[in-house]
Deep mutational scan, measured.
Amino acid sequence: HNLTITQGKLFFHYNPKLCLSEIHKMEEVSGTKGRQERNDIALKTNGDQASCENELLKFSYIRTSFDKILLRWEPYWPPDFRDLLGFMLFYKEAPYQNVTEFDGQDACGSNSWTVVDIDPPLRSNDPKSQNHPGWLMRGLKPWTQYAIFVKTLVTFSDERRTYGAKSDIIYVQTDATNPSVPLDPISVSNSSSQIILKWKPPSDPNGNITHYLVFWERQAEDSELFELDYCLKGLKLPSRTWSPPFESEDSQKHNQSEYEDSAGECCSCPKTDSQILKELEESSFRKTFEDYLHNVVFVPRKTSSGTGAEDPRPSRKRRSLGDVGNVTVAVPTVAAFPNTSSTSVPTSPEEHRPFEKVVNKESLVISGLRHFTGYRIELQACNQDTPEERCSVAAYVSARTMPEAKADDIVGPVTHEIFENNVVHLMWQEPKEPNGLIVLYEVSYRRYGDEELHLCVSRKHFALERGCRLRGLSPGNYSVRIRATSLAGNGSWTEPTYFYVTDYLDVPSNIA
């Protein structure tokens, strides 16, 4: 807008934040220059609390790290170098490059900038070799853009010569660093050979998330399962459950009422301010606690030095998902009996873990797994792929695949051998790939016309006998059925096997 004052003059007093240069501009645009008398524009009460600059400061050096910015700028000295009290560095987070010096300023003089007072450097006698002032900004957020400017702080001049310097606002972004852990990993099994893994992005990506790394490792069953005799009275049979499938998407929606109208769909109840505040506090606490764990609990591995020492970490090797089922080394339970199943799973520490690289999504279907087997899954978020990966501390989750139908069934015939004193040795093959492992066998036998009897055969007993022995049988026709019990439950009964026990007292003698 054009402003013209045809008559009258300007009068400025007691404006401590208004620089004289701005008042002189007002004289020019209003056409009143030359009308004012000496005392109409006070030299001592206008701009006496402001830094009124008329020179431009330029930054000469900028260096960044993930949490620091090192700045240096060209030296500046007023005509009387004693008038320079120091520099004021202003900075704040700036997602967009549209910041002005006066953003967030209120009537009390406060604003949204963080201000650092910096002492002037030592003055050199040689004007050509003056030290460049600077400042190291610490405690910054990774991968965050900051708006920065600097200006001088000078003393009051009796001659009211307006001098000083100020830089333009520059924008500097800190470097990326390792992201925080992925949030809320959930693993479920939808079949006997697959596990579905879902997660949420890290709360602090500290860069642009480029991919996720998912490692999985087959877990050995508890050692007590191999040692305890679950045929003993009072000892509860062990059981394991597989990871249940995901709930429906509708039930997972946030901010939804727990109660549904019987007449149909209901609208979600909005969260109160107290609920939102509580969630923010919980989120802040979780982030602080995660940072504490990362800094205190997890110790970084030592990389190899120039002395030739090897990095103890196993090298990563990509495998196809079809090879995942046989990740671990199978060892027989008892070496003397080769027909026992290889369900003991000690994992070799030198073995390469299978892994998958996930790009542009937060889910993965891990296939080719062994049925009813526990897996430990390790999830890392990465925001750099080359020249070397920059990934987060791992988040861990466990899951067990679903049982395989008929995996616990005894394959092959049940054979028998009759000894003296009416002892019958029953023999059968253990299931080759049971659900988890076989903890015991149930032997059901009966003599024709009598009630059915049951015998429990422990895992250890089966390994020693290759089956079991029935003792003290009365003469007669017998039928026997056997079924295995694994961590997933009972298998199917075998087809009945028949044998006849004679009275050993009636056996004919070869003595003449």
Results as ranks from 00 to 15, higher is better:
residue 205 P to A: 08
residue 207 G to W: 02
residue 209 I to P: 11
residue 209 I to M: 10
residue 211 H to R: 05
residue 221 E to V: 07
residue 223 S to M: 12
residue 223 S to N: 12
residue 226 F to H: 13
residue 228 L to C: 06
residue 229 D to F: 12
residue 231 C to N: 04
residue 232 L to R: 13
residue 234 G to P: 08
residue 238 P to W: 14
residue 238 P to A: 07
residue 240 R to A: 02
residue 242 W to P: 13
residue 244 P to R: 13
residue 250 D to Q: 06
residue 252 Q to Y: 12
residue 256 Q to F: 07
residue 257 S to G: 08
residue 260 E to L: 10
residue 262 S to T: 11
residue 263 A to H: 05
residue 271 K to M: 11
residue 274 S to M: 06
residue 280 L to N: 10
residue 280 L to F: 14
residue 280 L to H: 15
residue 281 E to N: 07
residue 282 E to D: 15
residue 284 S to T: 12
residue 284 S to D: 13
residue 288 T to G: 11
residue 289 F to R: 06
residue 290 E to L: 13
residue 292 Y to T: 07
residue 292 Y to G: 02
residue 294 H to N: 01
residue 298 F to V: 07
residue 299 V to W: 03
residue 300 P to W: 06
residue 303 T to G: 07
residue 304 S to Q: 12
residue 306 G to L: 07
residue 308 G to L: 08
residue 309 A to S: 13
residue 312 P to H: 11
residue 315 S to R: 09
residue 318 R to H: 08
residue 322 G to E: 10
residue 332 P to L: 11
residue 334 V to S: 08
residue 338 P to E: 08
residue 355 F to L: 09
residue 356 E to N: 13
residue 356 E to T: 14
residue 360 N to V: 11
residue 361 K to Y: 13
residue 367 S to A: 15
residue 368 G to M: 07
residue 368 G to I: 03
residue 373 T to V: 13
residue 374 G to D: 10
residue 374 G to F: 13
residue 377 I to H: 02
residue 378 E to A: 10
residue 379 L to H: 01
residue 382 C to Q: 00
residue 383 N to L: 08
residue 393 V to T: 15
residue 395 A to I: 06
residue 396 Y to G: 12
residue 396 Y to P: 04
residue 398 S to Y: 13
residue 401 T to Y: 00
residue 403 P to Y: 07
residue 403 P to T: 08
residue 404 E to T: 04
residue 406 K to V: 12
residue 408 D to F: 00
residue 412 G to I: 03
residue 416 H to K: 05
residue 416 H to N: 06
residue 418 I to M: 02
residue 420 E to N: 10
residue 425 H to F: 15
residue 427 M to Y: 01
residue 428 W to L: 01
residue 431 P to V: 05
residue 433 E to P: 02
residue 434 P to G: 06
residue 436 G to A: 13
residue 437 L to G: 05
residue 438 I to P: 02
residue 441 Y to A: 01
residue 442 E to A: 05
residue 444 S to N: 15
residue 445 Y to H: 10
residue 447 R to I: 07
residue 448 Y to L: 08
residue 448 Y to I: 14
residue 449 G to L: 14
residue 449 G to N: 06
residue 453 L to P: 03
residue 455 L to M: 11
residue 458 S to E: 11
residue 458 S to V: 02
residue 459 R to Q: 12
residue 460 K to H: 08
residue 461 H to M: 11
residue 461 H to F: 13
residue 461 H to G: 10
residue 463 A to V: 10
residue 466 R to V: 04
residue 466 R to I: 08
residue 470 L to P: 01
residue 471 R to M: 07
residue 476 G to E: 00
residue 479 S to T: 15
residue 479 S to P: 00
residue 481 R to E: 05
residue 483 R to V: 01
residue 488 A to L: 06
residue 493 W to L: 04
residue 495 E to L: 03
residue 497 T to R: 15
residue 501 V to F: 09
residue 504 Y to D: 12
